[in-house]
């Protein structure tokens, strides 16, 4: 069960904002800055953080939309970062992505059937005469009807489009699917449908998910383990139950507390964080969260906390825990 599928070591992505006359970088946006974690086979790893924390950039590095600045990605023991473009592309088959915006992620000029068939065709996975059959099978898997393959994306609702996006990701029988906020653009009643579909497919195909979200509530339902990111760094990783019962990092505590409670009779004491997320171009020295932290110590301003295991499986980067 605990076989590692992907081992991410010290991964960084710096976007160069400004270069000097000789083309040397002067300022860089450290979107992902030294992140390490593992994803086990058939687990769902939830990755949570606010906008600008680097979670989407991280996901896009894994599917080869960005090249990392630093670090290793060991996929089934092989380092993907040292491969050239062509060899790297052959791994696309194994790592797929579901995008956030179902309106932007489907080519408006292609029919649903062509969209789902495309990954099969370009990777030569099936002989031509079997492609259509496979497309119909995939449509059924995600709860769409076979006749809908001749229609164009604009004829579908957001929830249905997201189903198409899921079918496209499934088409190449991937081992890992990066789900980048797959339900955050959908209506509440449709979100539950898509979340359930994702859990069902995970069971059925033995998939592994990296599930990216900006709130702790969505990942709670689907994930086995959860990591929390802040300003390009992981601040806490723990098994789901442990994290929700015993959040250690002050940021995780604030995130949990910021989730509105659906029971006005039972209003809890809120931790309201002051201020905004600092700019990733010029993050605070020491602990990156110290400018907003409500448990700040003296050393937080100067020393960056180490990301360490505090209890079995529970990692945290905070000076409060020695």
């Amino acid at each position: 069960m605990n076989e590692v599928l992907m081992d991410i070591q010290n991964l960084s992505k710096h976007f160069i904002i400004d270069t000097n006359f000789f083309g040397k970088p002067v300022t860089a946006l450290k979107a992902v800055d030294g992140v390490s974690f593992t994803i086990n086979k058939t687990e769902a790893f939830g990755l949570v953080g606010e906008s600008g924390c680097g979670k989407t950039t991280l996901g896009k590095i894994l599917v080869n939309l960005y090249r990392p600045t630093n670090g290793k990605i060991l996929f089934e023991g092989k380092d993907l970062t040292v491969l050239n473009e062509e060899k790297r592309r052959s791994y696309c088959k194994d790592i797929q992505m579901i995008f956030q915006d179902p309106y932007a992620s489907l080519n408006p000029r292609m029919t649903i059937g062509d969209i789902i068939a495309e990954p099969i065709v370009i990777n030569n996975l099936l002989p031509k005469n079997q492609v259509e059959e496979r497309v119909i099978y995939l449509l059924n898997c995600v709860g769409l009807a076979r006749h809908q393959r001749n229609r164009y994306p604009h004829e579908f609702s957001g929830g249905q489009r997201q189903r198409v996006g899921i079918a496209r990701a499934l088409a190449v029988e991937p081992k890992l699917i990066v789900c980048d906020e797959p339900v955050s653009a959908l209506d509440v009643s449709i979100q539950a449908q898509v979340l359930n579909l994702l859990s069902d497919l995970k069971e059925e195909f033995g998939l592994t998910y990296l599930f990216i979200a900006h709130g702790l509530n969505v990942v709670k339902h689907i994930s086995d383990r959860v990591g929390v990111m802040y300003l390009g760094k992981l601040v806490e990783i723990a098994p789901k139950k442990e994290l929700y019962a015993n959040p250690m990092h002050p940021y995780t505590q604030a995130l949990l507390s910021a989730i509105p409670v659906i029971n006005p009779a039972n209003k809890k004491e809120r931790i309201i964080l002051q201020g905004d997320v600092p700019s990733p171009i010029n993050p605070p020295a020491g602990c990156r969260f110290c400018s907003r932290c409500f448990k700040e110590l003296d050393e937080c301003k100067h020393n960056e906390p180490v990301f360490k295991e505090v209890s079995p499986g529970h990692f945290v980067a905070c000076h409060l825990y020695k």
Partner: peptide, 25 residues
């Protein structure tokens, strides 16, 4: 009722499927 039930609960520890309203608007 459906809307309230289809929202994932933060202190619901069961791994059951979420309640969902079928179909669409």
């Amino acid at each position: 009722v459906g809307l309230l039930q289809s929202i994932p609960q933060i202190d619901d520890d069961s791994d059951e499927r979420l309640y969902m309203i079928k179909g669409m608007v």
